[in-house]
């Protein structure tokens, strides 16, 4: 599946490691939460970056002590209408995580801007939609009324007003 990052389709260099599989000596690997908890010592002392696929129903707080060693966290949308991962993303960013936050599962253009605003910066997407559809979806609304976005892309209406009224 193509990986969308910074408005571009890029190659996914991460390797998904099955729970029973041997840990490769090099390369970036993405593991399950169970594997992370079981083998963290080995996983974090090797030549290559570490990522975790984090389940939908778990509390992001369980990752807190692992965050400095993680370069990728993949959050799941089992169906696009299941919005738990939006809150998980916000919580992870609140915990100070600043590595790649990847949306996987049922990721569609019409939800892209919500994902960007809550802290996702990479998207595993289907080939159904052309690149322009994603670009357009992310930019169709230029303003937001919420102030807490991670790396905001839209302009925050309340701050714009503040600037206008101050004559800035």
């Amino acid at each position: 599946m193509p990986l969308l990052k910074d408005n571009d389709f890029i190659d996914d260099t991460w390797q998904r490691l099955d729970d029973g599989a041997a840990i490769p000596a090099t390369g970036d690997i993405l593991v399950s939460l169970a594997r992370l908890l079981a083998d963290f010592g080995k996983l974090s002392n090797r030549d290559g970056r570490l990522g975790v696929e984090f389940p939908n129903e778990e509390r992001p707080g369980v990752l807190e002590s692992f965050l400095p060693d993680l370069s990728l966290i993949a959050l799941t949308f089992p169906k696009f209408a299941d919005g738990r991962a939006y809150s998980q993303a916000r919580q992870l960013r609140q915990l100070g995580y600043d590595g790649e936050l990847r949306a996987i599962g049922d990721v569609l253009p019409d939800q892209l801007s919500f994902m960007l605003e809550t802290g996702f910066d990479a998207f595993e997407v289907t080939e159904r939609f052309p690149e322009e559809a994603w670009e357009q979806a992310a930019s169709s609304i230029s303003l937001t009324y919420q102030s807490a976005a991670y790396q905001p892309r839209r302009l925050h209406v309340w701050r714009l007003r503040w600037a206008r009224d101050e004559g800035v």
Binding site: D82, G83, Y86, S87, R90, F114, L116, E117, T118, T144
Partner: peptide, 8 residues
């Protein structure tokens, strides 16, 4: 309005 976290 279009709250990114609370729309689904």
């Amino acid at each position: 309005t279009l709250h990114p976290e609370f729309s689904f």
